[in-house]
Design a protein around this nucleic acid. Sequence first.
DNA 1: GGCTAACATCAAAAACTTATCAACTAACAG
DNA 2: CTGTTAGTTGATAAGTTTTTGATGTTAGCC
Lengths: 235, 235
Amino acid sequence: MQQKLRILLVEDEDHLLDAIKLNLELEGYKVHAVKDGKTALKIFKEERFNLIILDVMLPEMDGFQVCETIRLENTEVPILFLTAKNTSEDRVMGLKKGADDYLVKPFNLEELILRVGILVKRSMKSDDLKELNSYKIGEKTIYFNSFELKQDDGVIVPLTKKETMLLKLLIERKNEAVSREQILETVWNYDVYPSTRTIDNFILTFRKYFEPDQKNPVYFHSIRGVGYKFTDIHN
Amino acid sequence: MQQKLRILLVEDEDHLLDAIKLNLELEGYKVHAVKDGKTALKIFKEERFNLIILDVMLPEMDGFQVCETIRLENTEVPILFLTAKNTSEDRVMGLKKGADDYLVKPFNLEELILRVGILVKRSMKSDDLKELNSYKIGEKTIYFNSFELKQDDGVIVPLTKKETMLLKLLIERKNEAVSREQILETVWNYDVYPSTRTIDNFILTFRKYFEPDQKNPVYFHSIRGVGYKFTDIHN
DNA sequence: GGCTAACATCAAAAACTTATCAACTAACAG
DNA sequence: CTGTTAGTTGATAAGTTTTTGATGTTAGCC
């Protein structure tokens, strides 16, 4: 099991602190929350983090100062600023001090989580990335980066480039029908296309890989006259 | 003198395109500017970039689609969205499609340039190789610093510089496919690449060094249409 | 129920990529 | 200048992946 990713959260408003902490923990991060800059710096020196989230307005020592101090010794760790002020001067200031990203309060929690995910990805090793770029269908796991599929019995079979791309597309558009045109355009980069059975063949392969009963697919449905839809109720 | 960092800029408003291009060029970037998604994808397939700046609103194929298509093949290159709409749904959408950052029009040019700098730095960092002194494959050990390989029988054979660099790259990216472009860029410092059989020759050499059965490689796998992947289940 | 268009399936052909080898070039030491 | 070594190129062989085309099935419609 991979280790949890560690986040240092610095925010002085109690209820916001709790809300963010809770949500990040739900995403599986280990969150160390503190309420002022001095403490933040102290903790930072003692422990290693994959990301630092800093409120700009803090009692005593503001976020900019904290950021600047951290950057004196550590240029690596990603820093995300939170601020109530939405002016570009303010944002420019933050970025100049060494921030990597900037989010204006009040913010959408989903956006925070997405941005955190992007920043954190950077500080990860390739082993963890592998887990991140995977998708489980039933007991089988697709690894997009290594172009392989781990079966229920643990055996690894290789996937081709096109197979991987099409899987990625359908999974990304989970629960929605993706039209043949859309598929050809995205995976094959076709402008116009003759009627072709190519896509069917790929779906056929997927069904062989993933469907318990090939004749009654539960994952890869065809939508007559439109295209295909990937469904996964458990995921 | 190191070569210029390359940016692909996709924006359909003429004067904004010119303004951004000019400013980025003043910062020392090499900017390839295009006005629609189709062209962007075509150029993207032909050349390598350190960053892609995408307007969301484009004629025909919108920025989201372009981003999605790029991400099917390339998860590395940073993508920055420009948008006129400042809603969090829009931003979340972009981030979900695989963007790394998001800037709302009208924007402060200084902010754009700062964000570009941050994103580009990231892509360079992942390019240069970490410190890694030695690595064991089976009973053989590679010493990266001294450019040597100790065989099972203890005999030491020298490795060439390029061999060592390519080994380092593949081992660092263990378990993920490294594209030929990526390899050429990192080991050979090519911007654009001619079709070449050079990489194959190196892989051939590696297989001779490391694979018990050269015809059925367990360490150095080729992924058709993509590149090569180093796998080591014991390590 | 019969009809038709769209999908499923399979095997063979076509298209494309990589493996391999040998000849070649460039750089460099002596 | 000569020999050596690393690295590149190009030709051909060897494989794989993808596409095609033929044929069988199925869903939806009258």
